[in-house]
Design a protein around this nucleic acid. Sequence first.
DNA 1: GTAGGGTTAG
Length: 638
Amino acid sequence: MLRRIPQFSHHLIYLQTNRPFTTLQLTFNSFPPNSSDSNTPRCNVHLHHALQEMCVQGLNMKFKHYDAVLNECVNHKSLRGGQRVQAHMMKTHYLPPVYLRTRLIVLYVKCEVLSDARMVFDEMPVRNVVSWTAMISGYTKSGLYSEALSLFVEMLRSGTCPNEFTFATVLTSCMGAFGFEYGRQIHSLIVKSPFELHMYVGSSLLDLYAKSGRIHEARIIFEGLPERDVVSCTAIISGYAQLGHDREALDLFCTLQREGMASNYVTYACVVTALSGLAAFEYGRQVHGHVLRSELSFCTVLQNSLIDMYSKCGNLNYARSIFDKMQERTVISWNAMLAGYSKHGMGKAVVDLYNMMREENKISPDSTTLLAVLSGCSHGGMENKGLKYFDEMAGKYATKLGIEHYGCVIDLLGRAGQLERALQFIEEIPFKPNAAIWGSLLGACRVHQNIGVGKIAGNRLLELEPENAGNYVILCNLYASNGKWDEVRKVRELMKEQAVMKEPGKSWIEFGRTLHTFYASDRSHPRKEEVLSKVRQLSDRIKEVGYKPELSSVLYDVDEEQKEKMLLGHSEKLALAFAMMNVSEAKPIRIMKNLRICVDCHNFARFVSQVYVREILIRDKSRFHHIVNGVCSCGDYW
DNA sequence: GTAGGGTTAG
């Protein structure tokens, strides 16, 4: 009879081990055999009933029976099942061995009830490496990293030797809790262990090194692995991508693929992230093609990263068509699409999509969603709408608001020219204002030429971030454009004293299946002479219609002629000139820049787009500038 | 029985 009912089939093993207990057979047989579906919830219900029956009957169960029932519970993630088994053990005064207690821990960890798992763990008279590891893994999976690490320390003190499972688990907790130093200590423990570097331990270890910025050491561990698999390969690629070494990530992916590396959706997600950083549209389309031809095309995680990639390549239509076709959307899908519109300054599209999300009412917004909406209103020039949303959020989602959201409000007020109000708002926010807050206020002061507030913001900013050259530049711009030359000199001297390190500015464009990168005053590109003379030619032409070099953008104390020369060497101008020489007139020019675009280059690009009738897209560190007919989508505010 | 890599935002 049992064989006829599919949903009971996996209980057969259990029943076979319980042949003497006819009551149990009765328990199973008494369930209505009318249902032909074998879905898990139903099985769970039956399992519960069976366990309940066992308790009622007070059956004298032994190890193998408990083991079989617990197996079922683990398979079905049945929390109540586990609790009933435990209750049954207590009732019948059965003292479970280490193995069964460990199974209970595993079950509770799987059901994400750590308190129950810990209770079983604490009551164990004897523990083995598996029980320790299962408990540590529970904490790690729930993000309780310091608990995981202190349990690991306790384990060492108790004299239990960690195995490769323990190390692989505990290493993933290091970055989350005490950072790298703990990781290094565990690394030396691993080196002293009797086993060879296990692949799982190795990939966990290289991931730790990569995540703490030590990519070179991570690479050495990767090269030294006894063998490679998808996870270890993905970990090293992801290491490069997450540090922004997108080029290296892409190159390594190509090399490993040639060497026969297997890829799965995580691998592709990492590569797509690297491509987003590079804004390599053509490469991106190729990888997308691979994905479409594989069985991964409906993978939500991958679709999310593709949406982000196309947005960051400036192709919102592609991004939206993926978004629209998704069978299942997560909050990340919405966030990626919203952020895409936001970066392009498409405030209305952000608001429409946010409303659509709320109307669908399937997924509730998280703090990233709220940030995308606020920054979308800010980038899109919808100050009042943004402030209105913020008031609404402060009521409804107060717990989800962090300092970044308040930063957006400063942006919104700044954009609206309400600088005093912004300054007052900073006093009122429930966080300690950081560099981003003061930086955004200073930026607004530059645009609205407010020296009073600008001076306050600038000084606070220089206290917080004395090493960031960009801050000095903006403050100097503000003073210079108001003729405050004494102040300009003071800021310059301050900068010299602080020995400011500046991230070298670079711009790049994708052309002919290659990424062409230009650095300020570049001497490295094979066609540098040609490119420089093209910049001069463009400059001469647009000067005829009113372009004036913004000399205050140059911080060095040199004469005006020299300043103009330095401005002409800015990387985005080189990239633009290169594009004007190569990209067909029918196509928009797409330029990427690693820092924020400077005022002079922005003017330059606007004039070029007008005089030569070209559509120019520049993606800088914070947003897109879509320039058509001399008008930029940022409204000259960024 | 216990284990490693991942997507949005700044």
